[in-house]
């Protein structure tokens, strides 16, 4: 396959970036999208050029590292697929592919396609955890969890924190990520003691990081490689109202 790539190149956080065109003549339809960039980078290194910086780790679709907007779609046009699991067979021979970093003020570009997503880490720090005093492990059946709650928590827990929801959102909102974490922990008995304080602190941190507000367009769930459903945002709103309307206990 011959592919033309238009890639965002930016040498560091303060530099002004630009789109640069590259030609890859020996792409194979069985390659993953990241392997395509590997092939391009080998060429760039051999010719003495600076390789394209991009985030990647597991390449199995579960770590949430890869983060690039391909032809305007976070993680590319394939549904429920991370960029690392996207294969070139979904593109046409001779196609021009545009590759850009996540675009959000809260995710500043560090270099080329790499953005700083530590804003998400600080949101998790603010409340995305359960406090578990150490001691003997309790019996597995000591705390029953109804199946519907376990299923919903599991669906929400599939969030890998990649940030595609923010990249897709016209408002640069992290509401789908927030909603996934709130639903994941709030559906389980272990998440109850800190439930009210968690949502308030996480929402405040989300806003302080410079993410925008949700307008319920649903662009986030379309881009989510883990298909986190939109109702987690309703759960987030529900928990926030409960926690701040006097009914809640703020930890």
């Amino acid at each position: 396959m011959r592919l033309t790539l238009k890639i965002w190149r930016q040498s560091d956080a303060d530099a002004t970036g630009t789109m640069v065109g590259y030609q890859v003549d020996d792409a194979d339809e069985d390659m993953s999208f990241l392997e395509l960039l590997d092939v391009l980078n080998e060429k760039l290194i051999l010719s003495g050029d600076e390789p394209v910086a991009f985030d990647h780790d597991c390449r199995e679709g579960i770590c949430g590292s890869c983060s690039m907007v391909i032809n305007g779609h976070p993680h590319g046009p394939q549904k429920a697929t991370t960029a690392c699991q996207l294969h070139l067979r979904h593109f046409r021979d001779g196609e021009t592919i545009t590759i850009e970093p996540w675009r959000a003020a809260a995710f500043p570009v560090i270099k080329d396609l790499v953005v700083d997503r530590s804003a998400f880490d600080r949101i998790i720090q603010a409340g995305g955890y359960v406090s578990v005093p150490t001691g003997a492990a309790p019996d597995a059946h000591a705390t029953p969890v109804p199946k519907v709650h376990a299923d919903r928590a599991f669906t929400a827990a599939a969030c890998i924190g990649c940030g595609a929801c923010v990249a897709a959102c016209p408002n640069g909102s992290g509401s789908l990520f927030l909603g996934a974490k709130i639903t994941h922990l709030g559906e389980l008995p272990q998440g109850q003691p800190e439930r009210d304080g968690r949502v308030v602190r996480m929402v405040e941190q989300h806003d302080a990081e410079g993410f925008g507000g949700c307008t319920n367009t649903g662009a986030c769930t379309v881009s989510c490689p883990k298909e986190i459903p939109l109702d987690v945002i309703s759960q987030l709103n529900h928990d926030y109202i409960a926690a701040t309307s006097g009914r809640g206990r703020i930890a």
Binding site: V69, G72, H73, A104, G172, T215, T217, A219
Partner: peptide
Amino acid sequence: LARRAARARPVRYAATPKTPGS
């Protein structure tokens, strides 16, 4: 909210496919 949204998403994408959402 609109001003915050504009600040949160200052750079447009070069490739703009059909926007999801009604």
